[in-house]
Simulated scan of single mutants.
Amino acid sequence: MKTMMAGLLTVLVISTHTASAQKKSGAADLVHFPKGCSPKEVGKRVAARFVASPHANFGRPAPPSRINYPEVCTWYGALAFARESGDKALTQQLATRFEPLFTTESKLVPVPDHVDYTVFGSVPLELYMQTKDARYLEMGQRFADKQWGPPEGPRVKPESQGFYDRGLTWQTRMWIDDMFMITAVQSQAYRATGNVEYINRAAREMVVYLDSLQQPNGLFYHAPDVPYFWGRGDGWMAAGMSELLRSLPKDNPNRERIMKGYKIMMASLLKYQASDGMWRQLIDDPESWPETSGTGMFTFAMITGVKNGWLDAATYGPAARKAWMALVTYIDEHADVREVCEGTNKKNDRQYYLDRSRITGDMHGQAPVLWCAAALLR
């Protein structure tokens, strides 16, 4: 009888441990998702929405005078998703959208004299890698090279020459947004050409931003004179470090410093993730509202970290999965993402951030959903 009871107890303990392990494994699963929540399904819907959308103009009804950076980020995300999902038809649709920029819509191509305009180069560079059409490479390289060329044009500021003389881009502003805008195009130029100088540039720049702007808790103020951790602002840093690190050679002398900054930030974000999986408009403010663009960027950063082995999968896998599952609930029947903070300038006023308009379908929110879908498939 004692032997039988001991055997039953052993089976019970093993079963309990197995169930617990399976539960934990499921919570960290970044491969299998319920119907309607898989990266292929979600990415396809959001990418199709982008293909059908006109060129965006920050919510204004009039067409834009140039392609703006939220559209660039969404275009790049749709192309990344097309690559990772093997959807060549989508790649062709995205190339067809680009074709008029060589001819009838050439005036919409930005002048690469500002980080928000130079990031445009990441799209033709991705198109080159997927199609091998040399026109895309020439255009994309021109943008990446201009960013590290000598200061020129009406946007040159008194400090621009000083940054250039230090081996940084003259477009340096010390705004946290820059660390996606700069690293995206330079990393893409490296991926397209194999020329390591492109990504070395971005790494040197990233270290300067980390040393200058990262706070002890790993997060970033919206500006030195605005001590608030605004979600999307920090999202640009999280996504920028992730984009850089996934291609930065392991022998790069700045890799360790950048990885340290990335991991400190991820640990802090883990602490501030809300119980529903979202992050808030002001990251550390529990009275702030759940915001989707920042959440999408943080989710992308965590997925990328887990997939590449930089982050402990048992710790960060559940957070990344929970965030993705939460984010999907904010996509409406038109494949538009809700609760996206409107374009936001800095202001040393908490209420200013809490009162920002919450937009549906803004490309600031569409883009990171596509980045996440691609990262989950990568």
Rank of each mutant, 00 (worst) to 15 (best):
I176D: 10
E126R: 14
S288Q: 02
I199L: 04
E291W: 04
E152R: 10
P158N: 06
K307Q: 15
K24C: 09
I182Q: 10
G361N: 04
G26P: 03
K157Q: 15
S357R: 14
H364A: 04
W148G: 02
V208L: 14
W175L: 11
T292C: 11
V340D: 06
R66F: 09
G121H: 04
T91H: 01
N252I: 03
P110N: 00
A192V: 09
H114E: 13
W175V: 03
M139W: 14
E333A: 13
T131S: 12
N254S: 15
E339C: 07
H222K: 01
V31D: 13
K107Q: 12
L127A: 06
Q22E: 14
M278W: 05
I14S: 10
A323N: 01
L210T: 01
Y76E: 12
A48Y: 06
V42N: 04
Y352R: 01
G194I: 12
V369I: 15
H17P: 00
F120S: 06
T91P: 07
T10Y: 00
D284T: 14
T74C: 12
F50M: 12
Q281L: 08
A301P: 07
Y228H: 10
R97T: 13
N348R: 13
A82P: 01
K271F: 10
P249R: 05
L9H: 01
N57C: 05
F220V: 07
A313Q: 15
T91E: 12
W310D: 09
F180E: 11
F298C: 02
P39R: 03
L327G: 05
M297P: 03
A52H: 12
M265T: 08
R83S: 15
Q147P: 00
T91N: 03
T304R: 13
A21R: 14
K347I: 04
C73F: 11
W230R: 01
A184T: 08
P112L: 06
D336L: 11
G261K: 06
Y352C: 04
W75C: 01
A367R: 03
L125Q: 07
Y164I: 08
P39M: 00
